[in-house]
Amino acid sequence: MSHTAHIPSHRKPRRSASKLALRAGVAGGVLSTIAVAGAAGPANAEPVTETIEMPTLGSLGTDLSSAVAASAEASQQEALGQSLEAQETAALQKAAKEAKKAKAEADRKAEAERAEKARQEAEAKAERERAEAEARAEAQARASRDSARTQLTSTSASDSSGSSGSSASDSGSSASDSGSSSSASDSTQAPSGTAAAIVAFARAQVGDAYVTGGTGPNSWDCSGLVQAAYANAGIDLPRISYQQSSMGSSVSLSNLQPGDILYWGSRSGSYHVAIYVGGGKYVGAQNSSTGVVERSLDWDPPSGAVRLL
């Protein structure tokens, strides 16, 4: 225990600020009342008492609290308004950014669609031009072959007319009999064995599409069909038409047999091949317009033929 604990304190207790203010207000009111009474007149006059109300701490505290509350509410409203404005600004910026992004994506898709459409149109145009070029080349080749045959026929007729009458007559009769015999034999000839397999395969593809470089099973070019038909019979052929027409031995168009390879152009430089199927007909992958067809030799007479069987 402290040695100073038994000494009493001489300090006066502190008075609170509220009590001091209250006493000051009461004293002020009393003094004001006395001063007014002294100035009213003589001693025998009735005393006039006037009380001046002084503001109390209670009303001051209430007013102050109201002011503080109002200020706080105003600050809160202002802060809320600023927050809403900031949110609106952020939302507008986000919407603008998303709209810009969506527009860029739409522009990109539109450009891609335009490019794809242009590509398709270019491919279609190229295909049309290629088909037209093939048709023109085929027509020109056919016209050239027809002209050459006409010239050859005229030359042969002229040579025949220059010979003796009896010899020409005998020779003509012999040639006519031989041609009739060959024609009759060809029309009744039926393929057999390897030739039958080649012809059957070729005829089975009639109606398929023509595609440059096609090797089946549903689309072919001319040499691709011939190669596949011979492969079906166990015979390997080169892939290119002029290589195919260079194989085997040459045969006359008047002495054809089923399975013979027909060619157009020169033997070592042919540009088209097909398979003779008998009866004066052939099967070939002609072009993109006709596909694989079976046609008479008269429709497009070949330049020659070769036999591998």
Rank of each mutant, 00 (worst) to 15 (best):
E127L: 09
S167Q: 12
Q151M: 02
E111C: 05
K97I: 05
D159N: 14
K97T: 13
S167C: 03
E113H: 10
S176N: 09
A106P: 02
D177S: 15
R145M: 05
T150H: 08
A139M: 06
E127N: 08
E134T: 03
A96Y: 02
A110V: 03
E113Y: 07
A99T: 05
S158R: 15
Q93H: 06
S167N: 11
A143V: 01
A141S: 14
A124K: 13
R119F: 02
K117Y: 04
A124D: 08
A126Y: 01
A118K: 15
Q93G: 08
E105K: 13
E111T: 13
S156K: 12
S161Y: 10
S147M: 08
L92E: 04
A168W: 01
G172A: 15
R114M: 06
A95S: 09
K97S: 13
S178T: 11
E105A: 14
E138P: 00
R128W: 09
D146C: 00
E116P: 00
R108Q: 09
R119V: 01
R130S: 07
A168S: 11
T153A: 05
Q151G: 02
A126E: 09
R145K: 05
K109N: 11
S173V: 12
K97C: 02
K100I: 01
Q120S: 12
E111K: 14
E116H: 10
K125Y: 03
D107Y: 04
A175H: 07
E105D: 12
R128Y: 11
S173K: 13
E132Y: 05
R136A: 10
K117I: 05
D146Q: 11
S169K: 10
G165I: 13
S147E: 11
S163G: 13
S158G: 11
E105L: 13
D170V: 10
D170M: 13
A148M: 01
Q120H: 10
